[in-house]
Write a protein that binds this DNA or RNA. Sequence first.
DNA 1: GCTTGTACTTGAAACGCATCAAAGGGGCCG
DNA 2: CGGCCCCTTTGATGCGTTTCAAGTACAAGC
Lengths: 370, 370
Amino acid sequence: MAKVKISDVAREAGVSLGTVSNALNHPEKLRPETLKLINETINRLGYLPNQSARQLAGGATKSFGLVLPRLDHGFSLQIASGAHNEARKHGYDLLIANADNDDILQDHYLRYFMGTQMSGVMVQPMASPDWHPAMTKMPVPIVHLDIHCSAPGYYVATDNEAQGRIIAELAIARGARHITVVGRAAFMQLTLRVLGIHKALALHPDIKIEVIDAGEWNTAADGYSIGAQIAGRPADERPDFVVGLTDVLASGVISALVDKGISVPEQVRVAGCDGNPLAWSGSVPLTTVAPPGYEIGRKGVQLLMEQIENKVPTKTKHIHVGSAARTVTAATTAEDINRQELVRPFLLERASTQASSQTDATAINLGAYL
Amino acid sequence: MAKVKISDVAREAGVSLGTVSNALNHPEKLRPETLKLINETINRLGYLPNQSARQLAGGATKSFGLVLPRLDHGFSLQIASGAHNEARKHGYDLLIANADNDDILQDHYLRYFMGTQMSGVMVQPMASPDWHPAMTKMPVPIVHLDIHCSAPGYYVATDNEAQGRIIAELAIARGARHITVVGRAAFMQLTLRVLGIHKALALHPDIKIEVIDAGEWNTAADGYSIGAQIAGRPADERPDFVVGLTDVLASGVISALVDKGISVPEQVRVAGCDGNPLAWSGSVPLTTVAPPGYEIGRKGVQLLMEQIENKVPTKTKHIHVGSAARTVTAATTAEDINRQELVRPFLLERASTQASSQTDATAINLGAYL
DNA sequence: GCTTGTACTTGAAACGCATCAAAGGGGCCG
DNA sequence: CGGCCCCTTTGATGCGTTTCAAGTACAAGC
């Protein structure tokens, strides 16, 4: 049980300390026999390198940290997935921390990662990351995900506004007269979706729009109760188009409507946002706009790699993923954007289900309920 | 950009190195004014403690590592969620790594975590963890999740067999004559579910059962193509009950059946396993058995805490969560089990959706398609 | 004025490893 | 046989902390 260290291995194998170290880090420098001897000794003794010591002695390790606001949100997982694959491709490890919707905790893990000599850190912040300007001056490359930063720094944003616009345009095309948006609009990303909807509707002042908050957790139960409330209204105050800011919410709304005898989509059409595979792989697929989480994770790591390789982390660089059209906000002036990538949305067929979680693009899934 | 270290803070504040260290770790030992001075200096300089150095010098940190086979599987997330909350409750951090269904990677992260002086490590292995006996002799507490270990060691298992049994009993109660199980039975946990089904059917030799592998990823598309295959059979070779070893699979099967004109549940009933919130929050809820992932994560951390506090990590201890009935396998002899907890399955109501992801128990969701 | 005690503060010693200049050991050529 | 060069191995040095025995300053008690 006593921890075996490198010197134990060295003594046992009859070589010097530095040789064992080389066996671990630069195997090509050793004579094959020596290497073999050392490896056998390592296995026999059950030696496990002390990562802390390696990092202390050797500088940064090849690993990235990723702080996510929650783990039970499919979107965050796609980010994690994309980041993971890209990181492994470059030979980096990826460690993930759950901030549990808590600013303090998010900050805590961020500091933790930076202090661990990670090569880079990524966050999907729940609020604008301007909360702590000191963060951006840290000696570790950092990238913000799924958010627009007004502060200088690297980030990769998805065009949440475009998502809203896409949904709104769909609604218009379906002849909607009264749109109800369901979800906690106070969440940064959701706010932008709502903004996109409003913008798209600017040309159609005759279309009525309302937003109903769904509580903090955006659960199906929240959706259900809102759906029930909608169902209870007199027919002429009822929307003819409901947008769930989340697939789960939309799903709950549909349950309630159907339970209360309102037919979907005949009387009320419903659409969601997120591209949850289950939402549209069922027999009655839900229409949903999928933000390119996987791609965001991937780009995030690429941005990290750039900073690491260039060693010039002073320049601001942003990437926009999945924009259907370019958005201009105060934060993204021309000078801020050194590179911008637009990925066109496209339609997914019913049966090619898995594409939605692996694709590089913003996807619109056309399903039922619409 | 140059990293500021503790000695810089000390010099700048005009105190000694050890005093700054005390300010960080034992603030109560310092005179309030000194503490204040140091804290101000720390903030002014943007000092960030080097975690590697701390760990090296100070021994283990208060943090746990969790290695998961995949991140896009809801069940693993529930584990992560439960582990996270329990860990935070004890003041520990939780870091998560994604093994991406890869043995090597799983091993890699495991070693990484152990080498980082984590206080404890947890894995949800994809195969039996006996693959590497050396692991169990490591100087770091380790707990295996969602699996039965025959090797001595700590683990918390859910009763996968019981899940299968529950589903099978449901099928019997519905008068099934021919059951088709869809999924990659080679996955440890799924194997046990299938075993449970077989055992439950032992008393009903007249009921026909078949298992169809769904490929490695268990996607909805896999389910769809299997569903299509089933639909293509002559009516008398078609099952009257399909069990998706995963909700997503079941979902895909239903899509295919419906597309091919086979009515569900009139002609073929379908059930899933996993308790994916979306699976049964829609308008046509899927029947599914939910393994208590959240609780598994929680118990895992508790087991870790026990080992840490007792400092007697030699005793084998197992916890069974969510057993509907006790299973006895060769691996769990009476002596092995020091403590066993049985949580009774219960029914969830349609509208109380969020419970399924937060509950402590194995849940059976009764839905449509059945 | 001297001793004892209290309340902080100091700084040297480890923590386990990667690094790298230097040393060792052949082989080859002149 | 000496001189060179190349391949391999050595071990002292330092990475940024924590820890802890030793030190300092000051007050109280005699």
